[in-house]
Design a protein around this nucleic acid. Structure first.
Lengths: 194, 194, 194, 194
DNA sequence: AATGAATGAGGGTTCATTCAT
DNA sequence: GATGAATGAACCCTCATTCAT
């Protein structure tokens, strides 16, 4: 990749980052191209030169985010820490990723743009699920996870918690309950039997 | 309340219902006043006569929804069915409420309109929490709930699941895992120890 | 039609007239909605309230024009003047109609909007052709028109001349040749044989 | 002209040809510089290097077209075929020129760019009129043309027909009437008297 | 000489809101 | 009290043109 290409990529990333930040803070519909342009210090038209429509920009922002997330997730999985700690980090990782995408971004694409939704779904399936399966098998071997439970169900569970907790308003009110919530995840509302 | 007042109230309810339906189907931002007016069979200006801005309308729709939900929730709590069944219904009640508010509606107000958010929060606290506390005490007495867990944490947990599952895309993919998910809720990912 | 309706119709006509004038002077593409709005003394949005898109406005302007033309044409046909005079007026009628549509308007719809084109074509066929046939039969009876020529061919011919001459630049340069051109129409380039 | 110059001329011609083709197919306003650049396989800026504005490009395209047309016309005039055949070819020559300029191109310049219009007018006068005069004199000598008619009027007539018939939509519907139309041109609507 | 990148100005369109009846 | 009509502001997007390499 020559200097031209590299600078182009860099600018593209700038725009994506600006858009991602704004989308996360205000939601997708509320953010205009003009605002993104201002934040990225380019003209509106430049955005159109890189991404041919707002629709496409949203799509690309999403891909960008997914890849960022995946990298983050991968780090946790291969880290040298106990299994429960990994789960915890995965769920309560907001502060560390610094920027987690606003839930709306996800919903948005799922609803409005079914096709992209599917594409992303499959991208997710290909990359994230294997990683997670790996993690769960580790958990089962170490006796932290009930082998009778399907991986799908647990994946859903953890994803739900993770997604839900990312939200600013939620996160704040959750902190004091961290311990209890982790306990519920591991032992259910019936509680530990020992 | 005389006939005049009553008709006025009815018209107001019509508008709220129209708005709620549309908000749930398309999200808030995508629904214009003009569409609501059309669906409610009134003129746009009439909407402004009752709710003085779109902002206010959204607010009122939210109150309207909260109250509807509360009624629904109350029915479950006082029903003559076993505790676990109550929890299950609460979480998987989509099909029965027929119309659950779109998640976005909640997020929207929480984010955009912090003040209303608080108001609603308190309204929720006043009405829903006592009811839920009542329910959980029942659960603890019957040995279904670990008495060491805080009610807040469990409330959060159940609300999270309920909210999350309301979403159309989620609901569909969840159905086959109902049993596992319920198990995780009760016994955690460690599983039943017996 | 009550007063409401009547004022609405009047305003609609104002907009159509403004658009027609501008289209004729500058062509369709060059005229923006904003310019039409200014000329008609309304806001842009008002135009959208009446005609739901520029596309639709163009269509309606065209219909409006066709009907105006038809009325004008009808007057000539039923007038109590000799046949050759009728033909002449039909072809050189620019100054009398005051406002003849710019050729581009016609071409535009024919090319861009095939469907409307057809609709208009049929409207034309239904209304204008019968009238013209009537006129030609009169001409044939009076010995002014060769009975061996098909009406279609003559209609085409006269329409061509009429259309072509409407153009501002053409009209100016034609005036001195009026007599010759009429002669060619009646006797051809071979000339009168007597 | 050295190799350098020659390559430069060739590139210029490429651009002109690309523009002409596109203008004829879609009209002038609808064709963007970017499209012309793509079709000519050059960058937009290159176009600006050769023709310093779109305005100028249109002008040059027009000149280019006029010259092409002239050459074509000249071939007909000096061909060894009977006079009526020449007139016919001139009028119905669409298929043979393969590419006749879209009527709009003519109108466009006439209207928008009065100055160029004049320049072109004079260019036309200088080149085409002498040729046509020559042709008509031939016709008059052979008894095909009434000597009382002014050349201007006939020139107008033939040009009108030629222009009008070039249009795609017109051409199609005209074909069955070719004979009649030619007859009208030669003998008028009164018909041949013999 | 040629190009990729960038942009100001403007176009069609929608929306929440107000005016006038 | 209810409505049809009207609008300013904003949005997404395109285009002719210029800048920088």
């Amino acid at each position: 990749m020559d200097g031209f290409q590299r600078r182009r990529e860099q600018k593209k990333r700038n725009i994506l980052e600006a858009a991602l930040t704004l989308f996360m803070e205000y939601g997708i519909q509320k953010v205009s191209i003009s605002e993104i342009a201002k934040k990225a210090n380019v003209s509106q038209v430049t955005i159109y030169n890189y991404f041919e429509s707002k629709h496409q920009l949203i799509h690309d922002v999403f891909i960008y985010y997914i890849e960022k997330s995946y990298t983050h997730f991968e780090k946790i999985v291969i880290a040298d820490i106990p299994f429960p700690e990994k789960i915890k980090q995965f769920i309560f990782s907001k502060k560390e990723t610094a920027k987690q995408i606003h839930e709306e971004l996800y919903q948005h694409l799922m609803k409005e743009y079914a096709q992209e939704g599917n594409y992303i779904e499959s991208l997710y399936a290909q990359k994230v699920i294997p990683l997670f399966t790996h993690l769960l098998n580790e958990g089962k071997e170490q006796g932290f996870v009930d082998p009778n439970l399907s991986n799908e169900a647990i994946l859903f569970y953890v994803k739900m918690m993770s997604d839900y907790i990312q939200r600013e308003e939620v996160y704040q009110s959750i902190l004091p309950m961290t311990e209890d919530i982790t306990n519920i995840l591991f032992y259910g509302i019936v509680g530990k039997k020992d």
